[in-house]
Design a protein around this nucleic acid. Sequence first.
DNA 1: ACATAACCGAGACGGTACGTCGCGTCTTCTA
DNA 2: TAGAAGACGCGACGTACCGTCTCGGTTATGT
Lengths: 204, 204, 204, 204
Amino acid sequence: MATPVYSGATRTPQRGRPRDASRDEALRRAALEVMAEVGYRALTMDAVAARARAGKATIYRRWESKLDLVIDTCAQLASQNLAQPDTGSLEGDLRESLRSFAAFLSGPIGKAAQALVGELPHEPELAVAFRETFLIAQREVLRQVLDRAHGRGELREGAPRSMAVELAGAALTYRLMLTGEPLDEAFVERVVEQVLLPLVAKGQ
Amino acid sequence: MATPVYSGATRTPQRGRPRDASRDEALRRAALEVMAEVGYRALTMDAVAARARAGKATIYRRWESKLDLVIDTCAQLASQNLAQPDTGSLEGDLRESLRSFAAFLSGPIGKAAQALVGELPHEPELAVAFRETFLIAQREVLRQVLDRAHGRGELREGAPRSMAVELAGAALTYRLMLTGEPLDEAFVERVVEQVLLPLVAKGQ
Amino acid sequence: MATPVYSGATRTPQRGRPRDASRDEALRRAALEVMAEVGYRALTMDAVAARARAGKATIYRRWESKLDLVIDTCAQLASQNLAQPDTGSLEGDLRESLRSFAAFLSGPIGKAAQALVGELPHEPELAVAFRETFLIAQREVLRQVLDRAHGRGELREGAPRSMAVELAGAALTYRLMLTGEPLDEAFVERVVEQVLLPLVAKGQ
Amino acid sequence: MATPVYSGATRTPQRGRPRDASRDEALRRAALEVMAEVGYRALTMDAVAARARAGKATIYRRWESKLDLVIDTCAQLASQNLAQPDTGSLEGDLRESLRSFAAFLSGPIGKAAQALVGELPHEPELAVAFRETFLIAQREVLRQVLDRAHGRGELREGAPRSMAVELAGAALTYRLMLTGEPLDEAFVERVVEQVLLPLVAKGQ
DNA sequence: ACATAACCGAGACGGTACGTCGCGTCTTCTA
DNA sequence: TAGAAGACGCGACGTACCGTCTCGGTTATGT
């Protein structure tokens, strides 16, 4: 649902004029711009269509709804942005992965994510896509960081790895979405120094 | 803005028919009911008015918008729900205050709070009211818990009290709003045992 | 219905503060002013109340509705304006009575009358009052003019008196309300010379 | 203004979906039905839209207001209803044309016309359309009747033709709109016998 | 080459909710 | 009790956006 399907996978031989893939990008770009300017609530399909100089049907041919368009737009951008760090030390990896996630959240994608939060309880499909896009990828990165540190013997016995992973995501998104306080390097530093390392690193 | 002001405190003698305070309550009740049933997005002023057997003008006389109505409705309820625990021990107080906050968030008010998150960046006044209602009160409770524990000598030297307070709020709201995982006693227990006590309590 | 009753005729001994008769006049004046400015359709009770510096209840205590207020306002003015002419000759009397009626219609009362025409089919009570005020009085005047002329032997045998009376009213109101052409002395003159005298006067 | 213009006569190639002409008709029909049932005052755009199973925007795309819709609806019907009689005699033609006009006025169109009278002074464009639709066409018919009679030598020297034409319209509309008396054949007969023929026909 | 079929921009369409305004009533304070 | 002020329930207003549809016109493919 969240991805425009026009590959022809299920479509028989491919008759008629094929979809113009460049319209996808133009529409996603327009959607992101509009959302950044006025937020999700005030984003209208007419506005997106006008911005992309497209007809509304061209949008609905690709996405089922405003929600679908937005989540797909975010997912597209999200999938290119989270790199697996490997500095060799737990502390370095934590710092790097949190910094990376913070940067990711601080851009327009973070704004979009925030805009979608209110819809999650009423849109199960969106919730799935949202978590896949914004939570699981980040969690996976951090879990591997901890697993590798475990392999290197840097973790304390019985360190609450799952909780640490969850806390890291929680701390960053809480600032971003709820408190409005800055998601800067200093904060990342404090989370690493005062929370993550004390909870999981050996000899703290 | 978020509170219907018509007390006349500063207003001269009081001209015309005064606003009927019972309409406030009926409207807030209706708003909460409708929101619980269909969510914030699908809540319409017409529905609230109909449910409360009120004219729409009666709503708009008191609140400027749907958002304003909802935030005020929540604030009203919020202000009566967070008690300061005092069990005599850090662990007991933490457990009690988190449990209380979790319960608070698990009800309709939590749903409303989630619904409002997406509006915060575009509605500064709402953001202020939101933080006052949903964040600061809880923070204050927890801070006092830690301060009292500090007075009793239960805290470690240099314990990151601010961070602990923030983490507690973050962990709970993250679950509630983003991951969708249950905000149950077991989770509260884990946060206390695996995070808060290790970070601040002496001799952990 | 169309006349404000506050004489106490039916009201027992008269308890409490009596109605302020000066408010009647102020309200009628306000109503006439507003109607002259914006027409009947756009006349609002709030506007009349504001203009007269009165509360709306003060209006509704006297008149049942906007229509009632307007028709009474007109009736009040109408009753003072149609004089019975007596020049001694049929031609003089006709000229005088038509001139008088034309002047009556050309003022604000005529505008009000026009404004009410559209309501007549749906407001039987209004229709009765309207005809009494605007039609019958004028008819009566003209009929007496013709009867006196008959007495003086100025009428032709079998002159269509009723039709003549009706035609006079029709010709004037048609111009006023439908064609928008001027209701001036020249027109009155033509009606008398070309229509009424030829139809009823002896030896034409 | 009173006619929905979207022919594209001057418009370049024709962009977008064209207006559906069948909606025009459905809306006009609905407007006429509603007006016949509840009158002009109580006619609401919502009711018309609902009756025609149309959105309100579809109405407002074509007509600027209720007034505009109504006058256009009438004009549409009016233009098909007045036939030029030709019985060969003045009396026959007069009787026929008045009968025809009386019938025209007695239907829903007459009701609509009456409803519009009150708006004329405040709506110049409406006034123009109104006169074109309801007055001039009828006048033209009658004038030609008189002209043909003149050609046949049936008119008196110096007969007040203009006045006769005006009187005929005045007599009929006066009954219809003001007095509420029936606009029946007997009345038409009296107007012809007692007024028009005596005024203009030779040898009366 | 040329019909076929899906594409595209544009915008009309049926609907639903919006926030405002006017009606006629009701409720306070003041005289 | 009247009077000014203005809140109240109701319902229509005209607008905006939704998601669908129908135009004229374009662009690949399959015959």
